[in-house]
């Protein structure tokens, strides 16, 4: 076990512990409440750890990767985005794809978090779709009295584990948007997964180099 996966496992364990601990009243807490507190905890953690611009970018990338892979269903989202193309991909292509997908998310979102001034996230309501899927509807305040931005978090659970499977900003789903983006890239590049992998390699390299 590498050091990275060990810290990951540890922080995942601690998070579960924190979630179950903080939401255990006299009676068993409902899925709704747990999903809500999962998102609240995430928001607090993100504001606390990922918005400090004085931390060097390389370190922020590492912190954000940790945060993202722990709390988001990275593999599940990655597979869903690829849809039918997943079945056609070889094992090597699948492996590289999932790694590149994680890289793309990390290098595209790390600077957005740094630019984020830490306006509080207000949970409006939580609705459960079924016993393992819930949506936490939240608003993020904007500077200067502009109307708040609506951000909905799709949360899935498996046993005691909670993960974000989609983020919907003003009605636009992150997962659906990436699905269109990647699907179109595959079509533009001769219907081949290898074309997408080339595009992903180029994009992640340029994002890593260009920022700052």
């Amino acid at each position: 076990m590498t050091r990275r996966s060990l810290t990951k496992a540890l922080s995942a364990f601690l998070l579960c512990f924190a979630v179950s601990f903080s939401t255990t009243p006299a009676h068993a807490s409902s899925f709704e409440e747990e999903a809500t507190s999962f998102v609240r905890t995430l928001a607090e953690q993100a504001i606390g750890e990922l918005t400090d611009k004085s931390v060097p970018r390389e370190q922020r990338i590492a912190l954000f990767r940790e945060f993202f892979t722990t709390h988001f269903a990275v593999d599940g989202i990655g597979k869903w985005i690829l849809g039918r193309h997943w079945r056609k991909a070889s094992d090597t292509e699948r492996e590289e794809y999932l790694l590149l997908f994680e890289d793309l998310m990390v290098v595209s979102y790390v600077d957005r978090f740094a630019a984020y001034a830490g306006e509080p996230l207000i949970v409006v309501k939580t609705l459960t779709q079924n016993e393992n899927n819930a949506t936490v509807f939240a608003e993020i305040e904007q500077p200067g009295g502009a109307p708040p931005v609506h951000v909905d978090w799709r949360v899935a659970r498996k046993g005691a584990m909670y993960k974000i499977v989609d983020v919907i900003v003003e009605g636009t789903s992150m997962s659906s948007t990436l699905r269109s983006d990647f699907g179109s890239t595959i079509r533009q590049r001769g219907g081949k997964i290898s074309g997408l992998l080339t595009a992903l390699r180029e994009k992640t390299a340029s994002l890593r180099a260009a920022a700052n």
Partner: peptide, 23 residues
């Protein structure tokens, strides 16, 4: 938000272990 809309699932594995096993 349409609650019936398709969303990604967590996948077979909950942890972020090697992608190969997932595959």
């Amino acid at each position: 938000v349409d609650p019936t809309i398709s969303v990604p699932s967590i996948g077979e594995r909950m942890d972020d272990g090697p992608a190969l096993e997932e595959i």
